[in-house]
Amino acid sequence: MSSILTHRLFWPVVMLLVLFAINLVAFPGFFVIEVKDGHLFGSLVDIVRNGAPTLIIAVGMTLVIATRGIDLSVGAICAISGAVACSILLGSPNPGSVGTVVTAVVVAVVISLVLGVWNGFLVAVFGVQPIIATLILMTAGRGVAMLITEGQILTVNSPPFKVIGSGFLFGIPVAVLIAALIFTAAAVLTRRTALGMLIESVGINPEASRQAGVRSRGLLFTVYTFSALCAAIAGLVLTSNQTAADANNTGLFIELDAILAVVIGGTSLAGGRYSLAGTLVGALVIQTLVTTVYTVGIPPIATMVFKAAVVTAVCLLQSPTTNAVIASWRKPIAARFRKATV
């Protein structure tokens, strides 16, 4: 029992279940998943589908935070990748062809990888604090996206491109499949190999891990590039879903949601320990919260107040101070128990 209570995913999962319960009371058909035209439909499917971009970014963010870093530029990278893809599609004579869409996606991803390498360069080579290194791109990035779209909202009409954000494959939303693919890839690559442990060691003590032979510089490059890759893909999903690139609003505040998802999932911003499963729960909590606000009938504009409440609650429950208090409650019981057995 106590091992469940102290498990780092305990409070986030409780929060998710509470939100589910609230939804079920407000809307009895909440857990119903129907198949219409061979596609899955239902509130849960909506939550997973709308939460996909946040989850994709949060996966990359988890690895960055595990190295004691942070990546504030993901929202701007979302906007840039969407802007690049849409401007290529609009510039081509045949935006509906699969070839053009593939080119647009590849170019958008490659440009984002370059931006990720840039972040990695500032952090790993120049030793700039991650929060400030990525702040540069966060500030300048939206300006660059505006430059690409020339200040316009680029609306595209390309059926193959639309599939990324709102299509279905085997009845499952494509966005969800992409998120699942990235999540699984990250989990397998870091947890089935030593990569995850090396990332954590860099997060605990970069200097000590370097002296122990861990190539921390390369690892930092890798995580920031991966984070940018995730951001680019999320940007494509968002842009495709809206069928438009809006340099000002695509992925606005998504970096904050992603960081929240990671923190709610029990990964410490101090680095050195991460949980991808926690990030998954965190992203679901955030998206369920948004959905709950809608189903319960609270004006959607109040969502942010609830987000603040949930974040505060989860953080306070997970804080070392609270744990110490809980531990001090439990101690007398444990002591009594020990006395009884002696």
């Binding site: 904050l256 953080c315 070392p320």
Partner: peptide
Amino acid sequence: FAIQPFIATLAAMFLARG
């Protein structure tokens, strides 16, 4: 509660904006 300033002020930002 030893919460990082980044997260605590982020919560305050959401609260104020909300």
